[in-house]
């Protein structure tokens, strides 16, 4: 039974592919920088996933091998159109990188030292910061609902900034806390 998935409109494979091409083109920097684009295309425009699901996919993507953008694309593709959807969305997110680098490999090194390109990229980074900040605020409103979850978020951030703890351990820690809370709730006979 999966009523939730049935309620959401099923995209065509082409819609899935083009949405992820757009996400791939607009991802500057690492996988997390694609978050604002993912939100726009997959949550606001198409309702293929909820914000909670998106965070779950990110968590899984952080602690499984491979590129996070690819992991997230496979997840959303699979959820909406099964295995073929997973593969199509992944090819979509990879396609722009592939095309741009193959088409421009010989001139990329020249571009990289060009003063105007550098200026434009400094400006793009400012926009990316604002986009990411806006995404973090929106997601935090959903995920941080009480004091324990706020503590988890702050400790997770602090462990990385001050101790350089790897994201893998952060995710494992989050899972451990969740399991412990569930076990305690069970012990006291509380319904979650």
């Amino acid at each position: 039974m999966n009523d939730l998935a049935d309620l959401q409109p099923k995209p065509t494979l082409w819609e899935l592919f083009t949405a992820f091409v757009r996400i791939g083109v607009l991802t500057f920097g690492g996988g997390v920088a694609m978050l604002p684009m993912l939100e726009k295309e997959c949550i606001e425009k198409h309702q293929w996933a909820t914000e909670d699901e998106m965070m779950d996919y990110f968590a899984v993507g952080q602690c499984t091998p491979g590129v996070i953008a690819v992991n997230t694309a496979t997840f959303i593709g699979y959820k909406t159109r099964g295995t073929v959807g997973g593969i199509v969305a992944t090819l979509g997110v990879v396609f722009p990188s592939f095309a741009i680098i193959v088409a421009m490999a010989s001139v990329l090194k020249m571009f990289q030292d060009n003063v105007y390109v550098m200026k434009a990229f400094s400006g793009i980074r400012v926009a990316v910061c604002a986009l990411m900040l806006s995404a973090v605020l929106r997601l935090a409103k959903k995920a941080v609902t009480n004091i324990p979850t706020a503590v988890v978020a702050v400790v997770s951030f602090a462990l990385q900034v001050f101790l350089g703890v790897s994201p893998v351990y952060i995710v494992i820690g989050g899972i451990a806390i969740g399991l412990a809370v569930f076990a305690c709730g069970k012990g006291k006979g509380e319904a979650q």
Partner: peptide
């Protein structure tokens, strides 16, 4: 509980 941990990751 994993989601707030992810908020920490994204914030970092």
């Amino acid at each position: 509980y994993l989601r707030p941990a992810v908020i920490g990751l994204i914030s970092y």
